[in-house]
Write a protein that binds this DNA or RNA. Structure first.
Lengths: 204, 204
DNA sequence: TATTTTAGCGTACACTTGTACGCTGAGATT
DNA sequence: AATCTCAGCGTACAAGTGTACGCTAAAATA
């Protein structure tokens, strides 16, 4: 009942996922990973790949799920930090930048497949991002008493520019990056302030 | 002196570019185009490709330039429409959506290569988008008397969400798309209003 | 008119890719 | 202890890739 067998299977499955993430980089996107190379790095024969995934697409979707999970954990962490008494905007941005530094390849996967060539991937990524937006929208709604539709639109705009800034941050270091973060924070303030204004106006 | 020769060369060069754009689609991104397929569609032998481009990368960068050119022409057109008396936000958004409908593959190229695997591509796209942002920033600066730094940040945020919305619009039709455009316009208003507020506050 | 240039072609080669098929041996089940 | 299951392997193949090399014919140049 120990399940030595199943345990080993899980292990190489994880090895495949890890190998695939590892081969993602600034110069290598998911669609140009090859089954054989991934299998090689995971230490199994190419044909053994099929014992774990129907094809590369299935692996990829699994990876998107994993990245989405990381993203949600991240959000929880950010909320904890804010509760302790951090500024909402700078804490959120800081947390997100940590994600990009710690799991750049997970971020790259979401970033690229969001507008990639597979509709299934695009939908999967959209779903993960939607979670992100909805949680933020809920927070905004509670915090600023604006109506839920405006809260959603605010959250969507915020997530969009955070994501895009994240993509740019991948190519930057040092001061250029700090300037980027600075701009991002201003932009979030614009949306926050403008959103607050219109939400109020609308609720009269 | 007619240059029959050079003229023909230009023609097949254009055929290559056209073939490559034509093979971009929702399901096919630049990095999985093959030199052979592009050559086939352009009606030349694979090896003749090299008479025109050093490799696929060079073709791709040419295509980015072309898409950037289209984008700038678009902006001029939008400005003309606004001068005639259209609303700034809705005219700009409308014009951009026309771009997406008329040249979806040019847009897709910019969209994907912005976060693609080649640094050269990313830089080229970033350059084109920066033009776009700078022109908008200049317009905002003139129109709202805010300082140039805030104008730039506003413009950047606006372009970001317009681009991202454009990407989503590619997958939508009919009412879902109209709702997207509606949300986009609200989001632009947030930024505009918020930007105006902070720019003023800052200039005191 | 004689010569040079060159866009485009065909052949050829070395690689890489996905995956069908059948085998094996170690764990699971009875 | 006898049987079954199945993760992983090796072989094999057809298809596609980029590109080196040398040829040809037509346009350009002299």
């Amino acid at each position: 009942m120990a399940g030595v067998r199943a345990q080993q299977k899980m292990k190489t499955r994880q090895a495949l996922i890890a190998a695939a993430f590892n081969q993602l980089s600034a110069e290598h996107s998911f669609s140009n990973l090859s089954l054989r190379e991934v299998a090689r790095e995971a230490g199994i024969a190419p044909t053994s790949f099929y014992r774990h995934f129907k094809d590369m697409n299935e692996l990829g979707l699994t990876m998107v799920d994993e990245a989405g999970l990381t993203l949600r954990q991240l959000m929880r962490q950010a909320r904890r930090r804010i509760a302790i008494g951090g500024s909402v905007i700078s804490t959120s941005v800081l947390t997100f930048m940590e994600f990009i530094d710690n799991q750049p390849n997970q971020f790259r996967l979401l970033l690229r497949e969001r507008s990639g060539t597979s509709k299934a991937f695009r939908s999967a990524v959209a779903r993960e991002i939607k979670h992100f937006i909805l949680e933020l929208a809920h927070y905004l709604e509670g915090e600023t008493q604006c109506d839920s539709h405006h809260a959603y639109m605010q959250a969507e705009a915020m997530v969009t520019i955070v994501f895009t800034s994240g993509a740019e941050a991948l190519d930057l270091e040092g001061q250029a990056r700090e300037e980027l973060v600075e701009r991002l924070q201003w932009q979030l303030r614009y949306i926050s302030f403008g959103g607050y204004h219109y939400a109020q106006k609308n609720s009269k």
